[in-house]
């Protein structure tokens, strides 16, 4: 099991476009990924509803927990998503 703590960069937080890119990215990997905000239970990172329920805003810190063969690669990709400013999502 791998874990990583990441501070959210997109201005609107883990919501809207960044949240949907986050969930899509989770689904590209075999690893099972969970996400938690400080002091709360982790939720399934591949569920848009669960991710939205975190209410994680810009500057908040989240904990990512991944389990599976490609867990490290998944965490690298998810860290990228969470640390990309929102303006850059628009360029895709």
């Amino acid at each position: 099991m791998s874990e990583r703590t990441v501070t959210i960069v997109p201005e609107d937080g883990l919501h809207a476009r960044p949240a949907s890119v986050f969930v899509e990215t989770v689904n590209e990997f075999e690893a099972t990924v969970e996400i938690a905000v400080d002091g709360e239970d982790p939720v399934a990172a591949n569920s848009m509803l669960a991710v939205t329920s975190l209410g994680a805003g810009h500057g908040d810190t989240v904990r990512l927990i991944a389990e599976g063969d490609d867990a490290e690669a998944a965490l690298d990709a998810l860290e990228d998503v969470l640390t990309t400013p929102e303006s850059e999502f628009d360029d895709e």
Partner: peptide, 13 residues
Amino acid sequence: HLSILSSLSRALM
């Protein structure tokens, strides 16, 4: 808006 959205999403899980 974020707090309403997150409270509602949490309830609906």
